[in-house]
Amino acid sequence: MSKLAIKMTVNGTEIEAEAEPRMLLIHFLREDLNLTGPHIGCDTSHCGACTVDLNGKSVKSCTIFVGQADGADITTIEGMANADGSLHVLQDMFREHHGLQCGFCTPGMITRAHRLLQENPDPSDDEIRHGISGNLCRCTGYQNIVKAIRAAADQINAAKEAAE
């Protein structure tokens, strides 16, 4: 099978690679780029553990071929931390508010929450719950995940206000 030339930006770095056209984006990220933060939980786009940010949208990376991501700007959990190496506020709040138990859904949950807060910077708890309803967590009952996202939103908004 002839390989496909792929160009994309992943976590701020330009990537040029060759991949089988039928390869899914999640397999390309995990196996070719060694980015094992996005996880595979279901192969059918229901669990959200593979969620990444692609051109400003949350995308379940098991649902698209790597070829479809040609030219895309992708952020995975590995690219979430701040430029100075400190944890992104969402990462910090998930840790601080115990928004995880086993931690397997966490990378997808955080990347999804990141986009959610771009879409809706001050969501209600109900809006948070609907906003992450494409991401399954089996450990927490979602309670501390909602709390962590709420706390991150508050911090981001407070910082914005202070800057204005």
């Binding site: 094992t36 933060g37 959990i77 931390a81 990462q91 840790r95 995880l100 966490t106 990378p107």
Partner: peptide, 9 residues
């Protein structure tokens, strides 16, 4: 192990 779990490490 919090930092490991929120960073994909």
């Amino acid at each position: 192990d919090g930092a490991d779990k929120v960073t994909g490490r």
